[in-house]
Each structure stands twice: as C-alpha cells, then as structure tokens.
Amino acid sequence: MARTGRRPGNTRSREQILRAAREQFSELGYDGVSIRGIARGAGVDPALVHHFFGAKDAVFVAAMRLPYNPGEVLRGIVADSGHDRAEAVVRFFLGVWEDPGTREPMLAFVRSAVTNERAAEAVRGFTQDVITRHVAAEVGISPLRASLVAAQLFGMVLVRYLAAAEPLASAPPEEVVATYAPAVRTVLGEARE
C-alpha cells in the first residue's frame, strides 16, 4: 500500500516553493502569479503551499524575504484600539527601517522596485493587494486614503533612508513620529480637535 500524506523533506519542499515563487513573481509580477502556478513550478501540491505559507501575500513576503507581513502587523495595530492608530503605524514603520536587521531586506525591496520594471510590477501588485485587502478593510477607510498613507510613509522612507537628506535623515525617531503622525491621522480621517 502506498504511503499517504506529505512527502518527506519539508525543508527541501519549502525551499523549492520559495524558489518557484521568486522566479514567478519576478517574471509575471504579483498579479500574474497564483498559488497553483507556484505549486506547479515547485512540483508540489497547492495544499502544501497553503500549508507552509497560507495566502499569496504571505508567499510573497517569504519569497522576497521581507521581515514582516504588513497585513498581520496592521491587524495587530487595529486590534489595539487603545492607541493612536496613526502614531502606531508611523512608529512601527520607522521601527522596521531603524532596525539594521530589517532595513537591509526592505532597502533591497525598494531599490528593486525602483530599478527593475518586473520587480516594480511585483511590488506594485503586492502593495495594491495589501492596501486594498488589508489596510482599507482593516482600518475601515477607502483604498484611496490607504494609498495616500502608503505614499506618505514611502516618501518619508525615500528621503530619510535612501536619499539620507537632512535634517530628516538624522532626526530622532520619536521626533519624526510626533511630527509625522498628525499628517497620517488627517489622511486617515481621524484628525483630533
């Protein structure tokens, strides 16, 4: 009788899935990739892709070696309603970029999107998916408002970390949070009296 269940070599299967995902995201862009296509490229069942990673956005995060899944982080921020959401989002975003361990993969992610059209297409699709499915839905705002918040935050990243333009480049993170959160709060439609 033949054995059933997962095939041996989970680590090898996981790496095959990630390799297939990286290739497909770079060739087809985020929107052109499916879980079934990744599974086919890795020579595994789609259920194994779901087992290891879940949804397509989680596969993208793992394949691109991003340090966090924005959807999961956002759910945590929204769930913790005792805090100022705008301030929490800016603080988290800065925290990712201030940490040398997470800054490098994020810089590679952004530089790839700026210098390579295929990478830009993958990043664009992923960002639109996260903004539409997670940010707008979780926070209860329109996709346009969510896109504007993303634009504000990525603009800050470009000036602070890629261009390293002063005085923003060397401003203490808490000062940046205190100064920047009101602008994000306004776009979220949560302006304080």
Rank of each mutant, 00 (worst) to 15 (best):
M1R: 10
A2I: 12
G5R: 06
R6F: 07
R6M: 07
P8G: 02
N10Y: 04
E15F: 01
A20D: 13
A21F: 13
S26H: 15
L28D: 13
L28G: 01
D31A: 15
G32Q: 14
G32R: 14
R36P: 03
R36W: 09
I38D: 13
I38F: 13
A39Q: 04
R40C: 00
A42M: 11
V44A: 09
V44P: 07
D45H: 15
P46V: 11
P46A: 10
A47C: 00
L48K: 11
L48V: 14
L48D: 00
V49I: 11
V49R: 08
H51P: 01
H51D: 06
F52C: 01
F53D: 02
G54D: 08
K56A: 05
K56C: 04
V59I: 07
F60Q: 08
F60G: 07
A62Q: 13
L66C: 05
Y68W: 10
N69L: 07
N69D: 14
P70I: 08
L74W: 06
G82C: 07
H83P: 00
H83N: 14
V89S: 03
V89M: 14
L94Y: 07
G95H: 11
E98S: 10
D99A: 14
G101D: 15
G101Y: 09
T102S: 15
E104A: 15
P105R: 06
P105S: 06
L107I: 14
F109T: 02
S112F: 02
T115R: 09
E117G: 02
A119Q: 08
A120K: 10
E121Y: 00
A122S: 15
Q128Y: 08
T132S: 13
R133P: 01
V135Q: 06
A136G: 04
E138P: 00
G140L: 04
G140Y: 05
G140C: 07
P143E: 08
R145H: 06
V149R: 06
V149K: 05
Q152N: 02
F154P: 00
M156P: 01
L162Q: 06
P167R: 05
S170P: 01
A171S: 12
P172T: 07
P173F: 08
E175R: 13
A178Q: 12
Y180C: 00
A183D: 00
V184T: 07
R185G: 02
T186S: 11
L188Q: 04
L188F: 04
G189Y: 04
A191L: 10
